[in-house]
């Protein structure tokens, strides 16, 4: 459910100097509508007309596992043009104070559009490795 198990929050200062940035991954609240038992649902639990009462509950799906290429963000090259944010099809660029600071690794599908469109080469794609 919560994507940020591996990235510790306090490690940002050590990573600042060089190399890919590690950012705190966004945390999701608990789903307002629990659908984990949907396979066991009977007619009592299913909504009339297949209505989905919690809008946008796809955010609890993690699509990060689809990646074969992982984007790496190099903040020292970034000039804050935000093109990566504008072109990301999955809104997986994390923005703080009007600057891109990293990627939402739980949702980034690794398409590589951000690396292709970045005019400064501040994002590079690297083959995903097994942890």
């Amino acid at each position: 459910m919560t994507p940020a198990k591996k990235t510790a929050a306090g490690s940002s200062a050590a990573q600042r100097k060089s190399g890919p940035a590690k950012v705190r991954q966004p945390k999701l609240p608990k789903p307002a509508w629990d659908v984990s038992e949907v396979d066991e649902w009977g007619p009592e639990e299913h909504q009339l007309g297949a209505t989905i009462p919690e809008a946008g509950n796809s955010v609890y799906n993690e699509t990060g596992g689809w990646r074969s290429q992982r984007p790496e963000f190099h903040p020292e090259k970034c000039d804050g043009c935000m093109l990566c944010y504008f072109y990301c099809p999955d809104a997986a660029i994390i923005v703080e104070n009007d600057r891109a600071v990293g990627m939402d690794e739980a949702h980034c599908k690794g398409c590589g559009i951000c690396a292709k469109e970045c005019p400064r080469g501040a994002i590079t794609m690297k083959a995903e490795e097994k942890e």
Binding site: T63, K109, I113
Partner: peptide, 18 residues
Amino acid sequence: HSHTEHALWRAGNGACAG
């Protein structure tokens, strides 16, 4: 939800990469 500003189309969807 306040965790995403994208109201219309949220992440976690099944669209292909790119």
